[in-house]
């Protein structure tokens, strides 16, 4: 491949963003008729007219999968943004204030990380009446911890740097220093953390939907597709599970690639560690 590593990285980022945007947009503008039940076409294997085959209600699995992925991406986007903002805010707060605030922050992180994600997610989702809202809030509330901790650790080291000390000597307040010196410096980690949170959010959304605590069954979501397909594997309808499963994995890998390459660009020092 031509060009230096930086160019290559940049190209990979562009391609992954393009693919993700394509799936999201395709899913959003899709006519619901294209994945509506058409009983005349039920139980068909993969073919030219139905790439991923059809299910027992004659729904086109390709359209359903794309729609489901775009729903997942939306929920993932929403959840990662909110979750990482929470992480950034709490991490900065704890890092800058120190003392009791830090203790409280550590205690909260331990609390959230001490409970298995999936169980906490299920509890929150049920509490909020399931559905997209329950899942999104559940994911938001459970995923901020690791990023928060990274941010906090970064801030602890930044706090000792000369320019921060200098800034304090000039008489700036803690808030001023945080906004002008600290946050811009942790921003790269924040962005990378945000992108890398995506695959988690998507997988968790799919998992709890699969288990029946997430999105409602009529919604085209990958978790729903996979859990429904389990009932039909015995009859040999492998395509119901394989294609959507592979697609979900593909999206996760895309985000993973995006996150890693972003890190190479934005945060080259840490990325090499």
């Amino acid at each position: 491949m031509k060009g230096n590593r930086r160019t290559r990285t940049f190209i990979i980022i562009c391609v992954t963003v393009f693919l993700i945007a394509l799936i999201t947009i395709a899913g959003s503008v899709m006519d619901p008729e294209s994945y509506a039940p058409k009983f005349a076409d039920k139980n068909l294997g993969p073919s030219v007219s139905h790439f991923f085959g059809t299910d027992w209600m004659g729904r086109d699995m390709f359209c359903r999968t794309v729609k489901g992925l775009s729903v997942s991406i939306y929920i993932g986007l929403l959840a990662s943004i909110f979750s990482s903002v929470i992480g950034l805010f709490l991490g900065t707060f704890a890092g800058m204030i120190g003392g009791k605030a830090m203790a409280l922050f550590n205690w909260m992180v331990d609390l959230f990380m001490g409970i298995p994600h999936l169980i906490l997610l299920i509890l929150i989702s049920i509490l909020l009446g399931k559905g997209a809202r329950g899942v999104a809030i559940g994911v938001i509330l459970t995923h901020w911890c690791s990023l928060g901790r990274i941010v906090q650790a970064e801030i602890l080291s930044l706090k000792e740097s000369h320019f921060v000390h200098a800034s304090y000597r000039f008489g700036h307040s803690v808030r001023w220093v945080a906004i002008h010196h600290i946050i811009p410096n942790v921003f790269p980690q924040f962005v990378v953390g945000l992108v890398l949170m995506f695959p988690h959010a998507i997988m968790h959304e799919a998992s709890i939907t699969f288990l029946g605590f997430g999105l409602p069954a009529e919604q085209p979501a990958v978790g729903i597709i996979l859990s429904e397909s389990m009932q039909y594997l015995t009859t040999g309808m492998w395509w119901l599970a394989v294609f959507p499963g592979v697609c979900l994995l593909f999206i996760v890998v895309l985000f993973e690639a995006l996150g890693k390459n972003l890190r190479l660009l934005l945060d080259p020092v840490n990325a090499q560690m």
Partner: peptide, 22 residues
């Protein structure tokens, strides 16, 4: 570490599929 976590999630998905689909 992340990859491992994702793997674990996939495994959990598969396992729960085996036990909880009925």
């Amino acid at each position: 570490k992340l990859n491992k976590k994702i793997m674990a999630a996939v495994m959990a998905l598969c396992l729960s599929a085996l036990s909880g689909c009925g």
